[in-house]
Design a binder for these strands. Structure first.
Length: 591
RNA sequence: GGGGUCGUAGCUCAGUUUGGUUAGAGCGCCAGUCUGUCACACUGGAGGCCGCGAGUUCGAGUCUCGUCGGCCCCGCCA
């Protein structure tokens, strides 16, 4: 006697045209409904749910055995496909049922800690501990079916465009720039470490030097930084690199990819080419380097209007080269003191000292700062903001970056509160953000750091500025943004050794430093490096956007919590002294 | 590193403001009734380390301190 009767069909495949057929199903018992004179079992697998039916009068022994069935028991079941007396149009198999003739329990299940249903209310920590049960839910399974579709479309699209998938090492050299590395101790070479890749950046550039011309890889990357709802320290990139190309070649390639992906997953036609916007414009109009363009609510800069104001808060900021700007929250003049306080608290999270406001309602201006401003100043501000009856102006004054960042955050918060975000949720707005600064000054270390990474090429006409005004040099870097989410970023790389050396100088590396850290890349660039560039797309985030979820844990089968724990397997864990000794590692105990 | 918030039955939550008999509800579970259910319905029943540890008090789910864990955000991360 075999352990079980192997299925002839799955639980999602049978339809009316199979009526009369003898079938065997395997699956999990989802629910049992015992009506006394009628007995129903919902059998579930990855493909769907099929109803099994027993008529107790006809099969008293069978129903007696069936009464032992509990949720999540694994069974085989044989019977005949029949038309239902009362069809259920809500499920694909709802027109048929299986008249059960025989079955057996293949494996029992303990009572699960939560029900395996779609509309789950159970806290996430318990679901993560029993991830295998959570993953049994059709809702979550559909996410991984979507994720798999993303893999397939990606491989097909890039293969058709002559890309080669080449694997790069998971254990590599630690690099000082960018995110914190995860380190792997070397047993054979004690005291030395491998790093897990933050991205395969240098390897893919070296593949270009090697002449592979078009490389792609769906690859895990690792960054030892704090986690968020849209960030895990282990994540997946669609990594791309090409030779003999310019920025626009990357753009059209990636636009073609997204058009194809949206078509094949959601059946939606996306318009290409995508909009492009410089970093500077994105910041000053939307207060973000990843603006959500599905709605307006743009920022208005009023620095020039208040540069000579009696109101010191504004004029002092202007004196110190800061900016004053505002958002017009249309129709929000009715906001209460409490709501305005909440908005101010919200702005403070982004470093604001405060948030000035002007209400215009019933033809009257109401503002805590109106007594510091002249009537003509208020008039000019309102005009610049396009302020109409019922509007609320929210004003930020700060350093350039902070002023716009605060308003960018306030812009999203207003969109959230007024329901604008809800209204646009089924729209997709792709955008290229371009012309990022090559460098940014890091006050903490007192030096420039690379905004993208140290291999990013400066814009050609800005190369002379590297010697005179490095902070003004623009990079051949670009991000792709979808609905306010950064879904990818890349650049045209430096392929000339002399410019790469100059870049390292600007970053404060001595030639010896640069050689010790990146000598192998500098060497490679000496041997006929082609012009090249690429991009990396965030596969997890793209999948999130396709599914409309804002939780990255919904698209990763075995995710970590926000404190970096895996609740199912209990990692990270302590290891034996012997294991540490073998690696030459000692633990410093904190008091 | 910092801020916010949550932790009470298997699950979701009420009770905490103002300390006071035996800590409640819904779902699930167990038993029974039921011939067309599909979140079956109905009747009955079992089920508690109030996250953990100290403290205050005659008395703590409730107050204080600490600690562990979840979620969200800032910093960090591209």
């Amino acid at each position: 006697m075999a352990l079980f009767q192997k299925r002839t069909h799955n639980c999602g495949s049978l339809r009316t045209e199979d009526s009369g057929e003898k079938v065997i199903l395997n699956g999990w018992v989802a629910t049992v409904r015992d009506l006394g004179g009628l007995f129903f079992i919902d059998l579930r697998d990855r493909y769907g749910i099929t109803q099994l039916f027993i008529h107790p009068e006809d099969s008293p022994a069978l129903v007696e055995r069936a009464r032992q069935l509990k949720s999540e028991f694994v069974i085989w079941a044989s019977g005949t496909v029949c038309m239902r007396e009362n069809p259920n149009p809500k499920i694909p198999t709802g027109l048929i049922e299986i008249l059960l003739e025989d079955f057996d329990i293949i494996n029992r299940s303990e009572l699960p800690p939560f029900e395996i249903i779609n509309d789950i209310t159970t806290a996430e920590d318990l679901r993560l501990k029993y991830r295998y049960l959570d993953l049994r839910r059709p809702d979550l399974q559909k996410n991984f079916i979507m994720r798999n579709l993303v893999y397939q479309v990606t491989h097909n699209y890039f293969a058709e465009n002559d890309f080669l998938e080449i694997e790069t090492p998971v254990m590599m050299k630690s690099t000082p720039e960018g995110a914190r590395d995860f380190l792997v101790p070397s047993r054979i070479n004690k005291g030395r470490f491998y790093a897990l890749p933050q991205s395969p950046q240098i390897f893919k550039q070296i593949l270009m030097v090697a002449g592979f011309d078009r490389y792609m890889q769906i690859v895990k990357c690792f960054r030892d930084e704090d986690l968020r709802s849209d960030r895990q320290f282990e994540f997946t990139q669609i990594d791309i690199e090409m030779s003999f190309i310019e920025r626009e070649d990357i753009f059209s390639l990636i636009e073609g990819f997204f058009v194809r992906l949206w078509k094949e997953t959601l059946g939606i036609e996306v318009e290409a080419p995508f909009l492009q916007m410089s970093y500077n414009e994105a910041m000053t109009r939307y207060g973000s380097d990843k603006p959500d363009l599905r709605f307006g609510l743009e920022i208005n800069t009023i620095t020039d209007l208040v540069s000579n104001s009696e109101f010191k808060v504004f004029s002092d900021i202007v004196q110190s080269k800061g900016e004053v700007a505002l958002i017009n929250a249309k129709g929000c003049a009715g906001y209460s003191r409490k709501q305005l306080d909440e908005l101010t608290e919200f702005a403070k999270k982004y470093g604001a000292k405060g948030l000035a406001w002007i209400k215009f309602s019933g033809g009257v201006v109401n503002s805590p700062i109106s007594k510091f401003l002249s009537e003509s100043e208020i008039e000019k501000i309102m005009k610049a903001a396009g302020c109409e009856e019922g509007d609320l102006l929210l004003i930020s004054s700060d350093t350039w970056h902070r002023c716009y960042t605060i308003l960018g955050a306030v812009r999203l918060e207003i969109a959230r509160r007024t329901g604008i975000l809800e209204q646009v949720k089924n729209q997709y707005s792709f955008l290229w953000v371009t012309d990022f600064p090559l460098l940014e000054y890091d006050a903490e270390s007192g030096r420039f750091i690379a905004m993208h990474h140290p291999f990013t090429s400066p814009v050609d006409e800005d190369i002379p500025l590297m010697d005179t005004a490095p902070e003004k040099v623009r990079a051949k870097a670009y991000d792709i943004v979808l609905n306010g989410s950064e879904v990818g970023g890349g650049s045209i790389r430096i392929h000339r050794g002399d410019i790469q050396k100059r870049m390292f100088e600007l970053l404060g590396f001595t030639p010896e430093d640069a050689d010790a850290k990146f000598g192998f890349l500098l060497d490679a660039l000496k041997y006929g490096a082609p012009p090249h560039g690429g991009i990396a797309l965030g596969l997890d985030r793209i999948t999130m956007l396709l599914l409309g979820t804002d939780n990255i844990r919904d698209v990763i089968a075995f995710p970590k919590t926000t404190s970096g724990l895996s609740l199912m397997d209990g990692s990270p864990s302590y290891v034996d002294e012997a294991q540490l000794k073998e690696l030459g590692i000692g633990i410093i105990k904190n008091e």
